[in-house]
Design a protein around this nucleic acid. Structure first.
Lengths: 192, 192
DNA sequence: CAAGTGACAGACAGGTCTGTCTATTTAGCC
DNA sequence: GGCTAAATAGACAGACCTGTCTGTCACTTG
């Protein structure tokens, strides 16, 4: 565990570890973890190969760290987005967040889905992170459907997961219309 | 265009082109098109490298042919599955088909989604096939919701696409429960 | 029997990938 | 200034990838 007291390196004052993660995030998300090699991450981060292996040990751990940081950021972003929304409205408001994401310039689908489908080895460290994030979503959905006071709480919460997955996967192929379609359906589901 | 009049080759009476496609189908679907190299397809098909390049020209065209054959088979299978179902019931019955697929032994998600997320090059020949298949599904959904006589035909048909995508993508990560969840929701949607 | 054809086997080239290693440079701290 | 630790540059090994090419075998047809 290096980096005891921070010292400003020459590159924008951002440490090499964060530069590597930033580069990995851009490239892995945009093009996929298998399509992007170490060398391209190094060039994008303006870092040396030894730094990558010093900080992460191997590519798989870099991938896992990339996913962990991205999912953590998504959680924080979502919680800030929903902070002013009363709990009973959060389920439906959540889909506004999904629509905004799907409409954003650099949207390219769900990094968790991509990772699971690209890395078929069940023992890959990135898979545990993907599953953890999905459990977090499942818990939030149940929380929100309870707060909304719908009849079939659990079934509705699981249906929201399906809508979320469908919104993101569909938007990747067909464009953000799919996210709007999911929101339309969530409204019907939560109204009745 | 070779293979004018068929002659029985030594291998099970199956021509080398079909052996290659069978092997590609198994390996590409199970592990992904980037994870599987030409050599493994050749070994699995018990074929020579020259045969592959004779019949398909390059790997990308083999991938496209694999997708084309698989989607065509899925359409035929689905149409047979729905043949005895009256048109007004086909939308909901469709999700029985999805559940059965998600519960099948070798289910590993949607090959179209995988291909689109693995092959980020928009000009890849496999992408056109993926889009064609999705359009076919969209047309069927609209047909079935019209036959079912629901109020918002178009919105409902688009919602079915979201449910389908969510069922398949979710089942890949969380297991076939997600497909059942989608069916539950489709029932509610088509009932009201 | 002879010619033609489809498939096979495998070497090979040229490139890319991950990961290791050596040597050098930079920057803070005493 | 000198020491230490982090970061840099880049060569290198070994594996794997796609695609080409040469030569051989088996079988069919004239």
């Amino acid at each position: 565990m290096p980096r005891q007291r921070s010292k400003p390196p020459r590159n924008d004052g951002i440490g090499v570890r964060d530069r590597l993660l930033n580069a990995a995030d851009r490239l892995f998300y945009r093009e996929g973890v298998r399509a992007v090699g170490i060398d391209r991450v190094l060039a994008e981060a303006d870092a040396a190969k030894a730094s990558l292996y010093q900080h992460f040990g191997c590519k798989d751990r870099l991938v896992a760290s990339y996913l962990e940081r991205r999912t953590g950021a998504a959680r924080a972003h979502l919680e800030a987005f929903l902070a002013d929304t009363p709990p009973s409205q959060r389920a439906i408001r959540f889909f506004d967040w999904v629509v905004a994401w799907a409409e954003s310039e650099d949207f390219r689908g769900c990094p968790l889905q991509h990772t699971v489908s690209e890395l078929t080895d069940a023992a890959h460290p990135a898979r545990a992170i993907a599953h953890g994030q999905r459990e977090w979503f499942a818990e939030r959905f149940l929380e929100w459907t309870r707060a909304a006071g719908v009849k079939d709480e659990r079934e509705t919460a699981r249906a929201l997961m399906v809508l979320f997955d469908g919104a993101v996967a569909g938007s990747e192929v067909d464009g953000p219309q799919r996210a709007s379609d999911a929101r339309w359906m969530a409204q019907r589901l939560l109204a009745g």
